[in-house]
């Protein structure tokens, strides 16, 4: 099977032609760097995304921004957002703090990307 995907590793957005045979990526063309090749394998076999969000902090007027430390499986994005929506955080939250560990059994922690004191 041939699949055309756009590499998202950097804003160049290389157009990749990916050949998939028996659930395996057998050929990648059109990538400008090695990350594109890695991405083609991942995107066609196990797509993953970083998730970022703004989460309320109790008694503070401003939410704290958070991210998954690494990308999580694409199909778990909404489940992840659901867990974040019911999170109750207390100030202070510091950049880099783990606000939720092992989100949706992905083994990935959600960490704060700013400080709310």
């Amino acid at each position: 099977m041939e699949r055309q995907i756009t590499c998202i590793n950097c804003p160049v957005g290389c157009r990749l032609q990916v050949t998939i045979e028996n659930g395996q990526v057998t050929r990648v063309e059109g990538h400008g760097c090695k990350r594109g090749e890695t991405y083609a394998h991942q995107e066609c076999i196990a797509p993953a995304r970083m998730v970022t969000a703004a989460v309320p902090v109790a008694d503070r007027n401003i939410p704290v921004s958070v991210k998954t430390r690494t990308p999580i499986p694409k199909e778990k994005i909404f489940a992840c957002m659901k867990q974040l929506a019911v999170l109750s955080l207390k100030a202070p939250v510091y950049m880099g703090d783990v606000v939720l560990s092992d989100v949706c059994d992905t083994g990935v922690d959600v960490i704060a990307t700013k400080t709310v004191e």
Binding site: I5, T6, C7, I8, N9, C10, P11, V12, G13, R49, K74, I77
Partner: peptide, 12 residues
């Protein structure tokens, strides 16, 4: 917009 944003923000 950038390609990556079309893929990750709309197509996804």
């Amino acid at each position: 917009g950038l390609n990556r944003n079309i893929v990750q923000c709309l197509e996804d």
